[in-house]
Nucleic acid binder design. Structure first.
Lengths: 106, 106
DNA sequence: CAAAGATACCTAGAACTTCTAGGTATTGCA
DNA sequence: TGCAATACCTAGAAGTTCTAGGTATCTTTG
């Protein structure tokens, strides 16, 4: 939220898919999860995350459903089979990409 | 040219600065250099590279001058002092970023 | 108990980068 | 001679992320 993460451009899908790999979660919790995993470095704005989740869902990589706790509504997202496949693919691509960057930039 | 490199989004400046680190070069040669260093993976379109070079120059990170070989004109780019500083900074940021990605995505 | 802050969702439009798809001109090679 | 490679350039499209708002509920604190 406070610190935008421009470097993530193009890799945000991967980050969100990875954050969902261990089980369903709702948007706000994903932001926390990613902030924790990155030790505070990836501090995503809600306005960044929600549209990406919709895009991933409309692409068939996620499904969502509303859950209610008291009067509090949450939209839970979970990976589809295709989403899991895509995650594996993007992890591989990231690995490739970061190794290439090392070679190019070093 | 043939294979766009979307993953580079946000890191192209670094790649170009790094390609210029070992000495001046012109745009077309930079594209070759980057393709070689990346073993063919980063195959940039000219229409991608030239505007970035202008942006870097207008930001004071590069200077350029025309050279002529026969009737062939080439615009040679070289890093400025500020460009070199920026390169060091961006290399550090990349390292940080890629380590964070490893933690988040793994 | 009132106010503030955290939780949780959402959206429209701006900003920015990169890509697409052209264009020109010179040089070398078949 | 014609084609590919070299070498530059540009306008506009496309796409992602950010900014800057908005609503509502729940919890903590003064």
């Amino acid at each position: 939220m406070l610190v935008p993460v421009d470097a993530l451009k193009g890799h945000l899908d991967l980050v969100l898919l990875a954050a969902l790999a261990e089980g369903p979660a709702h948007g706000y919790a994903l932001i926390d999860e990613i902030r924790d995993r990155s030790d505070g470095a990836f501090d995503l704005a809600e306005g960044t995350v929600y549209p990406v989740l919709y895009r991933l869902e409309s692409g068939g990589l996620l499904t969502s459903s509303w859950t209610v706790a008291g009067r509090r509504r949450r939209r839970m997202y979970r990976l589809t089979k295709r989403g899991r496949t895509e995650l594996a693919k993007e992890r591989g691509e990231w690995k490739q990409f970061s190794e290439t960057m090392k070679a190019v930039v070093a």
